[in-house]
Design a protein around this nucleic acid. Structure first.
Length: 154
DNA sequence: GCCAACGTTGGC
DNA sequence: GCCAACGTTGGC
C-alpha cells in the first residue's frame, strides 16, 4: 500500500467540502503536471492512504486523512470545453491527464501545520518531499514512516 | 538542444 | 502583493 500527500487550496476545495460530499468522496481532478500525472496514472491504487494538505491559506498544513477509493482514470475535465481545466491536447483515446477518487477517512483533531512539520525538517522529516526546497508537486509520495510520524504529532 | 520569456505555485 | 523556484513554450 502506498502513502501520499495531496495538496488543495481550501478556498477552492477543502476538507469542509470533502466532508459534505456524497459518501465523503470526490474526484481528484485538475492535476496538470506530468510528474504528478504519472503517479496518478501508474501508482495510485485503491486502498492507498493519503494526507490532505491545505495550501495557499492562513495556516497551511495537514488537516485530514483520506483513502483512495478509485485508481487512476482519464480526467474527464480535460475533455470538457467549458471547464477551466480543459485541454484540447488531451485525446479521449489517449488521455493526457488522470484523476483518482478519494474518500475522507478522518478529519484531524487539529491542523498539523507546515511550521510544525518544518520543526522536524532536520531530523525525522528530513526526506519529506513537501519540505524540500522548491518542491511544488500537488501530489507526492510519503513514506509510511513519515506518514505515521506526522499523524503522531496530532 | 539551448535558453529567454512567461505562467504557476505557494509561503510569507 | 511580493518573490523565489520551477515547468512549459517557442524561437533559433
Amino acid at each position: 500500500m502506498n502513502h501520499w500527500l495531496m495538496k488543495t487550496e481550501p478556498t477552492t476545495f477543502g476538507v469542509d467540502d470533502l466532508a459534505r460530499a456524497p459518501k465523503r468522496t470526490t474526484m481528484w481532478d485538475g492535476v496538470r503536471n506530468y510528474q504528478a500525472r504519472n503517479m496518478l496514472r501508474d501508482e495510485f491504487a485503491r486502498g492507498d492512504r493519503a494526507l490532505l494538505y491545505h495550501s495557499s491559506c492562513e495556516v497551511p498544513g495537514v488537516v485530514a486523512t483520506m483513502r483512495v477509493v478509485r485508481a487512476g482514470y482519464a480526467d474527464p475535465t480535460a475533455f470538457d470545453r467549458r471547464h477551466r481545466h480543459y485541454d484540447e491536447g488531451s485525446d479521449p483515446a489517449n488521455p493526457r491527464w488522470y484523476a483518482v477518487d478519494v474518500q475522507l477517512e478522518r478529519r484531524l483533531r487539529r491542523v498539523i501545520t507546515l511550521t510544525e512539520l518544518r520543526a522536524h525538517a532536520t531530523r525525522e522529516l528530513s526526506k519529506l518531499l513537501l519540505l524540500q526546497k522548491g518542491s511544488r508537486l500537488s501530489v507526492m509520495p510519503v513514506s509510511e514512516a513519515h506518514f505515521d510520524f506526522i499523524l503522531a504529532l496530532e
